[in-house]
Amino acid sequence: MSKTILAVENLKTYFPIKGGVFNKIRAYVRAVDGVSFEVQEGETFALVGESGCGKSTTGRSILRLIEPTEGKVIFNDKDILVLSREQLRMMRKDMQIVFQNPYSSLNPRMTVQKLLSEPLINHFNLTDKEVSERVNWILDKVGLAKQHLNRYPHQFSGGQRQRISIARSIITYPKFVIADEPVSALDVSIQSQILNLLMDLQRDLGLTMIFISHDLNVVRRISSRVAVMYLGNIIEIGTTDELFDNPMHPYTDALLLSVPSLDPTKRKKRIILQGEVPSPINPPTGCVFQTRCSKRMKICEETRPSLKDIGNEHKVACHLY
């Protein structure tokens, strides 16, 4: 049985809105509003949803790149949210992130040599020779050459920059990596190469990964389990095959039917969602999706559904079940 390496419990991240003469807090943006899930050691767990649903904020809150409002993030039996700044710094080598945009995530004033050496110097007591050996090893692992070491980020293509970002994130041999839409800023022709690289690294190094994306075709290819987010909430979780073949929540169903298919025999009629996504400043009472749901019932307007286990490792937050 797989070990649970990460457990997120009732995670909330609210951003205050200030105004008035005394700049008082008037309201909160509820970017993440009570998210709970577990990630097993060695798996790739995907967070999906449309733009603005809170998936990237969830990822950054887990690593405390954004400070959560409340909740628990248990990593290897330690609650990340109660660690001191120094304790958290010591754990950084085990928890890393690959950012979406390789054009802004790398320091333009640092060569590749410095970019890759810096994490090793900060976290390990290594000799110059050991640092050089590990840098050369990781370069080869991500498909770059030694002659790239003295170049700056602006001298590389987008795909090469993302390879450098990935190398920087795994050079400390982390146990856990968050990949925050790592291919969405790249050309389609390059996306497949980066996905293959991530899957190879995940297999070879035994990485545990949270993969954040809005591209469902990419998610189906790379992930073992999927959680669907809407307005800061997780509304459905399941294994990849189970969720894609048997979506239970009306929102998940509409999301999957929006994915284009080249096979005319597999094309189905799309579900067009009516209305706009509600504001995270003032989310609806009851189910967060009830304002756009064609299957809305009276109870949906009054009570927020909790995630219920419906079998086959499948959970859904919907009053229909």
Rank of each mutant, 00 (worst) to 15 (best):
D245Q: 14
L243M: 07
R163W: 06
D241P: 11
N246S: 09
L257N: 10
F156N: 14
R161W: 14
G232V: 02
S192H: 09
L273G: 06
Q274M: 13
R161C: 12
D187R: 05
Q191P: 02
R151M: 11
S165N: 11
L197H: 12
D204L: 13
R151F: 08
E236M: 00
N233M: 10
I194K: 04
M248E: 14
L255E: 01
P278M: 09
V188D: 01
I166C: 03
Q191V: 05
L205Q: 09
A167R: 07
P264T: 12
Y230M: 06
I194E: 01
V188E: 01
Q202Y: 05
M209P: 07
V177E: 02
I272Y: 12
D215L: 03
G158D: 10
R203W: 09
Q191W: 01
Y173T: 12
A185S: 14
L257R: 13
L216Y: 00
P260G: 11
L231R: 03
S157E: 10
P174H: 05
I272N: 15
A167M: 05
I178Y: 01
R221M: 09
V226E: 06
H214R: 00
K266Q: 13
Q162K: 09
I190Y: 07
V277K: 03
K268P: 06
E181W: 00
Q274L: 12
R225S: 15
M248R: 13
S223L: 03
K269W: 14
N217I: 11
L205I: 10
H214M: 00
G238E: 04
S213Y: 02
V277F: 04
V219S: 03
Y152E: 12
I272E: 11
Q193D: 10
S157R: 08
R267H: 08
D253N: 13
M229Q: 05
M248W: 08
Y251T: 01
D215W: 02
I164G: 09
I190M: 10
Q155A: 12
R267Q: 15
L262D: 08
M199R: 15
F176N: 02
H214E: 00
S258F: 02
G159H: 10
P278G: 09
R270A: 13
D215F: 02
L255Y: 02
N233E: 14
D187C: 03
A179Q: 02
V188N: 01
V218H: 01
S279V: 04
I164A: 09
R163S: 08
Q162F: 10
R151P: 06
G238A: 13
V259D: 03
V183F: 06
Q202V: 12
R203K: 15
V183S: 08
I210K: 00
D241F: 12
V218S: 02
H214V: 00
A179T: 05
A167D: 01
H154I: 12
I178R: 00
R220Q: 11
T265Q: 13
L256M: 14
N233Q: 15
L216G: 05
S169A: 15
S224D: 12
V228N: 00
E242D: 14
L216D: 00
G158F: 02
V228R: 00
D204M: 14
S258W: 03
R163D: 05
I235Q: 10
G206N: 10
K269N: 13
S279L: 05
F156I: 07
I237A: 05
L198E: 03
Q193A: 13
V277I: 15
